[in-house]
Design a protein around this nucleic acid. Structure first.
Lengths: 252, 252
DNA sequence: CCTTGACCCTGACGTAGCGGCAGGCGGGAG
DNA sequence: CTCCCGCCTGCCGCTACGTCAGGGTCAAGG
């Protein structure tokens, strides 16, 4: 099987210029040329290209990619294993960023001031810069991006008033339930936990049961959130935490 | 609260040069200067920097970040919502890559040839290039990277022989169990499913129950895997799939 | 009061990883 | 034979900084 630059570019989702570049720097030279000096890529070249693209996506500089791939002490399976581990590390990192964002959203909802350390914790200690060339153009093409733009467009003043009203109404009801003495895993408390989740989903972001319990734990782990709820009613933070957990388990 | 460049750089995990650059291009100019023309950043500047860094990590070019942030039609909460959605999209994308890697590993374990389309499916139709400047230096500092390097170092010939032997032994036993007529959710079948999972974890990569069931579904979804198992014994692919699912459920 | 060392300033040049264009050859379909 | 699309080789441009160089600044200590 032999392929031209154009064919390779199409299937691999890169530009011809990129393949030229990789040839120039010796990262991926086609295994042959036609008499007219057209580049001819074979299956082994494609396999190498696949490795290159994965390592590139993982953020390695091209020069180092060459070193990794040409390392004679690494068979194909070793590369797959390594990439698998690197990918899971990256996913973990992005999930931490998501948590940080959720933290910031809760803080802004409850009018809590963030310290610089809070703000940059996720970047601070070890900070994998990422660029993503041409991202806009590409993200611009995805549904998710459009969706994001749509939902991110500013709420009207009316919306904010409604959010505030819904929140306050919910607040009064959970305080009442707490005061009534029914346990946190009672249907009434769980129903209010569920409503809490739906308010977030409707107005802010898709809040799964998993995310929701994460949030609940945040209410106990960070004293500012704890205080916010404790100021509303003593015992509310723990009560809400328990109700959210109970609700998540019962719906799963 | 006022901060010097150095302080800001440290807490935000960027270099001083980067802050100089952002000042030069007007992306983030400190709100003040000392008489000696030292840059002075305040809390609002830090808030802006946080936005910049998140969008940067999400791959937007700086010029566009400026446009997004300076858009008067977007309040702080809107940014958080947008970033939350973009992050989840990215995580999904990386998870697809992980699945693709797992697919490739299974293929290589079973000696199945991949077509170029298989190889690049994950890049093909929509391809979010990612760079991650200086990643190596930073990844180089993490435990995960070292761990990855350690485990990815080539197996010895003896290792391969042991893997092969373990696999064949396991194969004989599951064929026997299948032939004996006990159901796929019997303790015997489930035990062999569990063993299958542990072989992968020991020799290849951390294989959670979730990943394992994903793999099992692949055995049915892709005819090449199906055929591989069917060639060993008719009905084995489906039997193994069911046993893996049953095992995952019972251990959860 | 003066020094020392850590920190800050402003240029200015260098680099990676391509994008994009110019100018020209090749090849197969009609 | 001609068209048009695809390929070739330069070569210049761009982004997001890294990395000096050459020189002020500020607080602590002798």
């Amino acid at each position: 099987m032999a392929y031209t630059v154009g064919q390779v570019a199409r299937v691999a989702g890169v530009t011809v210029r990129t393949l030229h570049h990789y040839d120039e720097i010796g990262l991926l030279s086609p295994s042959g040329r036609t008499p007219a000096s057209y580049r001819r890529y074979d299956d082994a070249d494609l396999e190498r290209l696949q490795l290159v693209l994965y390592y590139r996506e993982l953020g390695f500089p091209l020069e180092e990619i060459a070193a990794i791939i040409d390392d004679p002490a690494a068979d194909p399976a070793a590369h797959l294993r390594r990439q698998h581990e690197l990918l899971t590390v990256r996913i973990k990192r992005l999930q931490e960023m998501v948590t940080a964002i959720e933290f910031a959203m809760e803080a802004s909802k409850l009018n809590i001031q963030l310290t610089p350390e809070d703000r940059f914790e996720v970047f601070g200690d070890f900070n994998p810069e990422e660029h993503e060339a041409e991202a806009e153009q590409r993200w611009g093409d995805t549904d998710a991006y459009r969706e994001s733009n749509r939902r991110a467009s500013r709420y009207t003043k009316d919306d904010w008033l409604r959010i505030k009203a819904e929140n306050e109404d919910w607040g009064r009801r959970i305080v009442a339930v707490l005061a009534s003495g029914v346990p946190a895993d009672s249907p009434e408390a769980m129903e209010l936990a569920e409503e809490h989740r739906q308010i977030i989903s409707r107005w802010f972001y898709e809040c799964s049961y998993e995310v929701h319990t994460g949030l609940a734990d945040m209410y106990l782990a960070d004293e500012r959130f704890t205080r916010h709820y404790e100021d509303v009613a003593p015992g509310l933070a723990a009560y809400l935490n328990e109700a959210i957990h109970a609700n998540a388990i019962s719906r799963a």
